[in-house]
Design a protein around this nucleic acid. Structure first.
Lengths: 227, 227
DNA sequence: GGTATACTTCGCTTATGGTCGAAGTATGAA
DNA sequence: TTCATACTTCGACCATAAGCGAAGTATACC
């Protein structure tokens, strides 16, 4: 029976390698120009322009003009979630694009997943918070405990401003490289921002790699030690 | 940068209309034969066979042989979740396949979303449970309250057996036709099963439509009234 | 064993859509 | 105003993969 939403159309848009590369690049949470996305996809400007027009038409991407520059970003966390889900399915089925180089190792170590920390360090943080009783599970639901609230506030996170927002505070996000959870939600985002604000970590301008400084690494390990 | 999971490959698999139709048919939670899926997709047996082989190879589908019959089902709730997410994106962007007929109305009224009730009645149930305080939100997290536990146990749901399972009890699932939440998780599944066991509702053999009997409708309305 | 049914595999056809060169439009800076 | 840069649109090319007919394999039944 052919009724309901046309998932083939949306999936086919994501199913083109050039478009998939652009969407993946935008998982960094940054807005990129047409030129930058063309470079990400390894196609010419004109090809990228046609692709982006389609993705915009399908409301997967949001455009913004700044003078002669046109920036695109993912059209919200719902798109990111579907992309991450596809990543999980692809990784689970073994469809990984091999890349023998330092970047692959770095991507697995720490990377940004839309707006929060993912990879080995992302899952370490999640596991540590669980082990220290700062995050709890109730009926398989993730929540911040009282000790957790004190912990993150002590780290400089303004919980009050986070909790007035409509988006969830703590969300489990399945990490495709670790096959375990890392922390998403507004708290995950806030923690990532704080790492950057404290200069513990910085994002790579071109990729989703997050690089922690030696000091940042030490502090991170101290703060999110494993039992 | 071309690293990480190959989402284009998985998305392209879903992006073919014949394969999308088969995956959508399997959202009913039922296992279907190659012949049935060929009919769903409107292609010949040989074409369907080739498509299903690809979906199986990608671990999106799970095969099971029974004599000369070969059944396929979705390879778990993770696949269903990605498909539902794609449905939400497609519906949100207006990519709906029009179908002026009784089935469209029925699909929106009540349908099965993998293993739980969706559509108008699915969201009504969710809203009612929230309004009556049987479901609660804590830090945007859904949980069953004490009154909710008593409520569903009074309806014949064995909560103890549900809670020993690893899958979440209460999950919000974004309903593509209503654009609001309906109840997923093991509780959502158990409630759907109970509606069937009590002969309040039955699933359509060919589609995802769930049809409530007049008595079932009355009981459902009484049980899940809106304030 | 013969027939019917369910499914798989092979080979060929062809429609589709991504790609880029060329040309045009829009914005910024000197 | 001119030149440089960013992006859009058009048209033609061609690689790819879905589709089906044909043939083969596997299972069920009489």
């Amino acid at each position: 029976m052919k009724e309901g939403p046309n998932i083939a159309y949306i999936a086919a848009l994501i199913g083109d390698p050039a478009r998939a590369n652009m969407l993946t690049a935008l998982m960094s949470g940054k807005a990129l120009t047409v030129s930058e996305l063309a470079h990400e996809a390894g196609v010419t400007l004109q090809t990228a322009s046609a692709h982006l027009s389609k993705l915009q038409e399908a409301e997967l991407l949001l455009p913004r003009k700044q003078g002669r520059h046109k920036y695109f970003s993912l059209n919200g966390p719902e798109v990111a979630r579907v992309l991450e889900g596809l990543m999980g399915l692809a990784a689970g089925a073994g469809y990984l694009r091999k890349r023998t180089g330092p970047k692959d190792h770095k991507l697995r170590k720490a990377r940004v997943c839309y707006n929060h920390l993912a990879g080995d360090m992302g899952t370490q943080m999640f596991d540590s918070l669980m082990e220290q009783g700062h995050l709890g599970l109730e009926q398989e639901r993730l929540f911040l405990t009282e000790s957790g609230a004190a912990f993150v506030e002590g780290f400089g996170i303004d919980l009050k401003s986070l909790q007035v927002k409509s988006s969830p505070l703590c969300l489990e996000c399945l990490d495709w490289s670790e096959r375990r959870s890392h922390l998403a939600g507004s708290l995950g985002r806030a923690l990532m921002s704080q790492f950057e604000a404290l200069s513990w970590a910085k994002r790579d301008a071109k990729t989703r790699v997050v690089t922690f400084t030696p000091i940042g690494t030490t502090r991170f390990e101290q703060m999110f030690r494993r039992l």
